[in-house]
Design a protein around this nucleic acid. Structure first.
Ligand SMILES: Nc1ccn([C@H]2C[C@H](O)[C@@H](COP(=O)(O)OP(=O)(O)OP(=O)(O)O)O2)c(=O)n1
Ligand SMILES: [Mg+2]
Length: 826
DNA sequence: GCGGATCAC
DNA sequence: TATGGTGATCCGC
């Protein structure tokens, strides 16, 4: 391995020499973005934490070794802060900018200590510069390549910014942005302290992992295909109303779900609020969503996919992952030819060693269009060999030719049946296919032949899973913009990200994923729901009044319960989501002692979560249910008895709530083997008192934001009634009574047990006590997370599991769509 | 396990 | 005037 490393470094060095090879590539459209971003990052920052670094490494001076003295541990954050304070502002470094212009795509990896940039300062003023805006708004991202624009990028940015800048939404975004910048600074600090020896060792680790991944996942014959319908919602509408085709048109409500390509010329995008879209394009026609129609189309396409790969996976309504390997092999054989076999591919160990890819990256001998041609360095000699090789190449070409034709056929059929056009990507891995599917959109397809050249200049943002934030971290923190750079800086990845994330990023950088469409999603009749949670959330005009909020909550629970019933789901865990009028989001979760499913149950628990937060003004509430009761598998039918639970201690058998009448007060889970921690009685540190019947419904003062932890430790149980906010220092039983009365006043449904029909509002007496536990007050007494935890790792929805045979699991189809589901506003 | 964040669509 | 909804995963506590 060591040897290999060495050779790789050589290669890398070479690469540096051949800069032009990489950088002379004509940059299309998006590239200006990159370039200016880079300048951006550098110019703006100006302040390099470490004084040294800047100009130095930007050019010839490698200057890695040098500094790197301290090694911050978890005190990193502090370090960052102090740096910030001391070297807050510094003049831009012109030289750096110059360099970046010359070689936009990378300042070489060795510049470990390189891009000393601080994250861009994000204040409104800064955003007045178009460059700063660009990566701020989600929908300003580069989208489908539309050549003809009716509005320039700058124009769009200006208009969007104008419309946004004084909104609460905008402020919220800025707040979040600041946190991201902090993260970036932490990254940079860590980078500054990376010693060369460590760097080498990390790189070796990266290479080891990459080699393993190559071995496990790299294939050169697998035909991975991603099919994605074009401008899906609008395409369906246009099919039914052809006149819409000619004009800028979008589907959505308050927010655009999607826009047709005509509208996109004006800058209209998914997730853009309608009022802004109209500013961009006053003629814009808008229709609301018709999910049933989209669903129908989706089903039609799936019927087609099944013909080619019965195990295809639906990524969403309009997107599917297919493995056509078997189909293509068969087709090749049918036409009397022989499909290529892995073994005969010269120099392409089905599992290419790391060096192979890097050689591809260095461009040492890429070219050769087809497949793994870049790998063929081997020193063959005989003409015989050459003949043989040629034959193989022909078969190779034929094979992929068939694949392309099959995909064309699929797209043709889709269009024929649904009237909607589709685009597709073909490659030897799904992540590559996914990237490729956008390449020739709309109504086009693209096959990734030479992986290395495809990835070399591909912006990291094109990788599915690298979103706006991660991209920013990579660009601003590591000066990484392309997949190649991602690979080249693999050592840094392992330094600033968790091993998981680093591995994931590294794999993506070379186009690796788990390959096979495992997961027998649609396999046998096995109706696997696979879902892990179900939720409902609603946005509404800001509300403060308790009754109003409770009513919304009630409606949300009704709706969610209905869906849960439809799918026969019962959940043990509930999460309440709140978005305040200033767009700050918080969630609160709890475990229920028993599986819940009815609206009343959901509401009761959600209320428990909401009340402690109460004095708030909200614009959204949501409830999510998870930890479902396992479906009664095949054999054992009468599951779900408490006995079983106790016996196995496994939640699988967790009972539904015991027959209503019986479960009186005494809901302590001690019966489940937990020692009643009575001693602490009302101790705050343990959450709500467990013995109290309504423990669930109370929130100890101090659990909340107020009351400092310090005061907590003392007994003197002082509670604040969540309803009237009255502070009470009384016996629990009395408190209980008090809260009950408050509840009765504020919400007639609250104690209601039976009668799903809510018609009756009259007096409600507490029939069946809610047997819901209060489990371990764990949820209630979460520490007041001093959340400013700046983690520099890229969090977020990626699958970073490498070893696990199946990196990229797409959620089985799901619905989305704001404006779709229920036209009725709650 | 919770809460915050990120991502995709 | 005005910025969606669903589901999943990851990370640091
Ligand atoms: N933020 C988003 C993104 C997408 N969608 C919906 C509308 C889209 O039509 C559909 C498919 O998403 P795509 O990302 O595939 O976008 P389109 O199909 O609309 O356009 P493209 O041609 O780029 O695929 O999902 C949505 O409601 N909200
Ligand atoms: Mg699409």
């Amino acid at each position: 391995m060591a040897g290999q490393n060495a050779s790789m470094e050589d290669i890398v060095e070479n690469d540096a020499d051949e800069e032009d090879f990489f950088f002379t590539q004509t940059q299309e459209d998006g590239d200006e973005v990159w370039e200016s971003d880079l300048e951006d990052a550098r110019g703006r920052n100006t302040s390099s934490a470490s004084p040294s670094a800047l100009g130095a490494n930007s050019d010839t001076v490698i200057e890695r070794s040098g500094h790197t003295k301290y090694c911050l541990s978890s005190a990193e954050k502090k370090a960052v802060h102090s740096e910030q304070n001391t070297s807050a502002l510094r003049p831009p470094d012109g030289a750096d900018a110059v360099i970046s212009r010359t070689s936009p795509s990378h300042s070489f990896p060795r510049s470990i200590s390189s891009p000393q940039k601080t994250a861009s300062t994000c204040n409104v003023a800064a955003l007045d510069s178009t460059r700063h805006r660009r990566h701020f708004y989600t929908f300003l991202g580069d989208k489908a390549g539309m050549d003809e624009k009716k509005r320039s990028r700058e124009e769009v940015e200006r208009i969007v910014h104008e419309a946004s800048k004084n909104s609460k939404f905008f402020l919220a975004q800025q707040r979040n942005d600041l946190k991201v910048q902090e993260r970036i600074q932490v990254m940079q600090s860590k980078l500054n302290m990376l010693s060369e020896p460590l760097r080498r060792s990390l790189e070796a680790e990266a290479d080891r992992e990459l080699a393993a991944a190559e071995k496990a996942y790299r294939t050169w014959r697998q035909v991975c295909v991603v099919v994605d319908l074009d401008a899906f919602f609008t395409s369906v509408e246009e099919r039914d109303e052809p006149a819409l085709r000619e004009v800028p048109f979008a589907v959505g409500g308050g927010v655009i779900s999607t826009a047709n390509y005509e509208a996109r010329k004006y800058g209209v995008r998914s997730a853009m609020p309608l009022f802004i879209a109209r500013k961009l394009c006053p003629q814009l026609l808008v229709r609301s969503t018709r999910f049933e129609a989209y669903q129908t189309v989706a089903e039609q396409t799936r019927a087609i996919f099944r013909d080619y790969d019965p195990r295809y996976r639906a990524g969403s309504l309009d997107e599917a992952y297919l493995d056509l390997t078997a189909y293509v092999h068969a087709a090749v054989c049918d036409q009397g030819e022989e499909p290529p076999t892995p073994e005969e591919k010269p120099g392409t160990p089905l599992f290419a060693p790391v060096t192979a890819l890097s050689s591809g990256f260095t461009g040492v001998e890429d070219s050769e269009g087809e497949g793994g041609a870049a790998w063929g360095a081997m020193g063959g000699d005989e003409e015989e060999e050459e003949v043989r090789e040629r034959a193989i190449q022909e078969r190779e070409a034929s094979y992929w030719g068939v694949a392309e034709r099959v995909v064309e056929e699929i797209r043709r059929r889709i269009h024929g049946v649904t009237g909607v056009t589709a685009s597709a990507g073909i490659a030897t891995s799904f992540c590559l296919a996914k990237m490729a599917s956008n390449e020739n959109k709309p109504n086009g397809q693209f096959r990734v032949g030479d992986v290395a050249s495809f990835l070399r200049d591909a912006p990291v943002r094109k990788v599915s899973g690298i979103g706006r934030i991660t991209e920013r971290c990579l660009v601003a923190g590591l000066d990484v913009q392309t997949c190649f750079q991602l690979w080249a800086n693999r050592a840094l990845l392992y330094h600033v990200y968790t091993p998981q994330t680093a591995r994931w990023l590294l794999c993506k950088s070379v186009g690796l994923d788990g390959g096979g469409l495992v997961d027998p999603e649609e396999g046998p009749g096995g109706q696997r729901t696979g879902r892990k949670g179900i939720s409902r959330e609603r946005t509404f005009a800001a509300l403060s009044r308790k009754e109003d909020l409770l009513e919304k909550l009630r409606l949300i629970c009704d709706s969610l319960a209905a869906d849960m019933a439809r799918e026969g789901l019962k959940a043990k865990n509930l999460t309440l989501k709140l978005k305040s009028s200033d767009f700050a989001v918080t969630t609160r979760a709890k475990n229920c002692a028993f599986y819940v499913s009815t609206s009343q149950e959901l509401y009761q628990h959600a209320l428990f979560l909401l009340l402690p937060q109460l004095p708030v003004t909200l614009r959204l509430m949501g409830v999510r249910a998870s930890h479902f009761q396992p479906k009664p598998q095949a054999p054992p039918k009468g599951q779900g008895c408490l006995e079983a639970y106790v016996a196995t201690g496994h939640e699988a058998a967790m009972a539904e709530r015991p027959p209503s009448g019986s479960a009186k007060k005494v809901a302590s889970p001690s019966s489940l083997g937990r020692p009643p921690r009575l001693g602490e009685g009302g101790s705050f540190s343990t959450g709500p008192p467990l013995i109290v019947v309504d423990a669930d419904l109370l929130s100890p003062a101090g659990g909340g934001k107020e009351a400092t932890r310090a005061t907590v430790t003392k007994q003197v149980p002082v509670y604040t009634c969540p309803l009237c906010n009255q502070r009470l220092s009384v016996a629990l039983s009395e408190l209980n009574r008090h809260v009950d009365s408050c509840l009765r006043e504020s919400d007639p449904y609250f104690l209601e047990k039976e009668m799903p029909e809510e018609s009756k509002k009259g007096d409600v007496h507490r029939a069946g006590r809610k047997p819901c536990d209060a489990e371990d007050g764990a949820t209630a007494n979460k520490k007041s997370r001093r959340s400013e935890n700046v983690n520099c790792s890229s969090r977020g929805g990626k699958k970073k599991k490498l070893p696990p045979a199946r990196p990229d699991a797409k959620p089985l189809e799901h619905f989305f769509g704001s404006n779709s589901r229920r036209p009725t506003t709650m």
